[in-house]
């Protein structure tokens, strides 16, 4: 049943088999995608026709490799920049929210906290449409009143950042709060007693204590941004992010170049996971 209790071998092996099947289910799509990224065929399907790097580097009439595909490369770049800015923004505001909700008492706290965790249970679609509705309304209002068209409020880069940040901050807040709850508040009081100001106490005591959570919070926000589709699709302008670009191609013009970019992402993520695991081990 558990490690310390004896088990029949049928139970043990049966259980192991089930978990094995589950993990196969989990990695199968990633493996299949990765393998087909190197298939020397114009179709994303078996049979295997030999090994090639074409889908990464080629630039011929019927094959455009990932690194030759300007639109794709640009969308990767857009996604990285979006994720960086959104990650930093979420980190700052999410951390502030964690400090606010864990350490302070004030009127209306419950209501604000409800709003702060609401994005967990609001479908991304809804966040997307309500933000585009609002920004359009506000932009329209501003233009009518002043004649000036606030560009950052029309669909495009900044609206995507804002839309993703609206729920990214929630995740950072939860990650940072979890660590902050383990923080001994007398440490901060000790800093105050040693004549630090409140802001100095946060800077020299609280923030260093939170550092691991801040790093993982940023990483999670970055990854959420990088792979977000549901909210982003409503907010993009002329520069699609990678998931939006990929979606369009999956629906309308798929070639194995999609596998190439997917393979690249799988490699980056796996490396990231392995490094993480290694650092964990060392501790």
């Amino acid at each position: 049943m558990i490690r310390s209790l004896p088990n029949t071998s049928l139970y043990r092996n049966g259980y192991r088999f089930y978990v094995g099947i589950f993990f196969l289910f989990l990695v199968l799509p990633l493996v299949v995608i990765s393998v087909l990224a190197f298939n020397d065929s114009n179709f994303i399907a078996l049979p295997w026709k030999g090994f090639t790097f074409d889908w990464f580097f080629a630039n011929t009439d019927d094959r455009v490799g990932l690194f030759q595909d300007e639109d794709l490369v640009r969308s990767i770049w857009v996604s990285i920049v979006t994720a960086l800015i959104m990650g930093l923004l979420s980190l700052g505001v999410g951390t502030a929210a964690a400090l606010l909700f864990v350490q302070e008492k004030f009127r209306g706290k419950n209501f604000l906290y409800f709003l702060a965790i609401a994005p967990l249970v609001i479908p991304g679609v809804i966040l997307g449409i309500s933000i585009i509705l609002t920004s359009t309304q506000v932009a329209g209002g501003i233009e009518k009143a002043t004649g000036w068209d606030p560009e950052f409020l029309s669909p495009g880069f900044w609206l995507v950042v804002l839309g993703q940040f609206s729920f990214g901050a929630t995740y950072v807040m939860l990650i940072v709060s979890a660590r902050l709850k383990k923080f001994d508040p007398t440490l901060e009081e000790a800093a105050l007693s040693l004549k630090a100001t409140k802001l100095e106490a946060i800077r020299y005591i609280t923030i260093p204590f939170l550092r691991p959570a801040l790093i993982s919070g940023f990483a999670v926000a970055f990854l959420i941004s990088f792979s977000n589709f549901n909210t982003t699709i409503f907010l993009i302008g002329s520069d699609p992010t990678l998931p939006v670009e990929l979606f369009t191609r999956i629906k309308f013009s798929s070639t194995p170049v999609l596998n190439a970019i997917s393979f690249l992402i799988v490699v980056v993520i796996s490396t990231f996971a392995l490094v993480n695991l290694y650092l964990d081990r060392k501790k």
């Binding site: 799509p29 990854l223 990088f226 998931p243 990929l246 993520i269």
Partner: peptide, 9 residues
């Protein structure tokens, strides 16, 4: 890993 790779892929 599949979670981080993203739903679309």
């Amino acid at each position: 890993v599949p979670l981080w790779v993203g739903e679309l892929i």
